[in-house]
Amino acid sequence: MKAYIFKRILTTIPLLLCVSFLCFVFINLIPSDPAEVALRVRQTPVITEEAIEEVREELRLNDPYFVRYIRWLGDCLTLDFGVSYTNPSRTVLGEISRCLPATVWLAGASLLFVIILSLPIGFLCAVYQNSWFDKLMRALIFMTTAMPAYWIGLLLIWLVSIQWDLLPTSGSGSIRHMILPAFTVSLTYISTYIRLIRNNMLENMKEDYVLYAKVRGLKQKNILVRHILKNSLHTCIVAIGMSIPQLIAGTIVVENVFAWPGLGKLCIESIFNRDYPVIQIYVLLIGTLFVIFNLLFDIIQYLADPRLRGER
């Protein structure tokens, strides 16, 4: 068991290296010259060849590619992500850690929405398969998958904040500010998970162990909750591990719609300002989160399943 976990952790190291390398390469593929961008941002009046060369030296952009990558990676490992091109008085780490909490809160609230809505709805849809409730939910799911998040966000602002005047339209500061953006982010995941839980449960209902449970006279409620639901959630574990970083990354659009001061907003601003170090670290962070959550939930699934655990 320990061997498996150890091995699994080891395999993430090359994966993380790949992520970081891709991250580095892609940013460097962008056609505009970061030195020139840095000069513009610093509002240098005349941009001369010499000035560009100076900044290239300053930012050490003249070194060979691979050397720059290794240096960058080494810096990253010591959490030294450099300074923002846009505003040299700010470090990238400072920017990221300033915006991260807001995004984590938003993603956390979204996850909460996903769990408290999709679990009971998915369960009921499976138990009352093809009932009016199931059909209604399926229609709603179909509709939400066809609508982009920002559009739903705008609709919600219009309906809930403007028409009904129930919640603030944008900004942050209280739980009330969080409800609409969190709900908007969670919407696509809610439909995914309703479908996942419903279909998993329907699949499990066909299993032999359910027939045998019925044949032994177990109570229907027990069979549904203790056995079918538990087994269905087991197959959701890995999916949740993927959804958490997706939620964090997925706030990018919604944060801008709701002016939520998180990573997504920072990322978009950095893209407009061509603030490469920030973009790079944002992408690296999201990539790393994917790898880590995947690892974490793989291990959770492994520990939760007696067959995988290989108990003897």
């Binding site: 299993e207 162990y209 045998y212 044949v215 006279g217 177990l218 538990k230 087994n231």
Partner: peptide
């Protein structure tokens, strides 16, 4: 009917390997 099943009328199925819930 539930109270009869397993109590008055017991059943043995074909595939014992898949009859039990793997998680318990």
């Amino acid at each position: 009917l539930r109270s009869y099943r397993g109590n008055d009328i017991a059943v043995i199925l074909q595939n014992p390997m898949t009859c039990f819930d793997p998680l318990f």
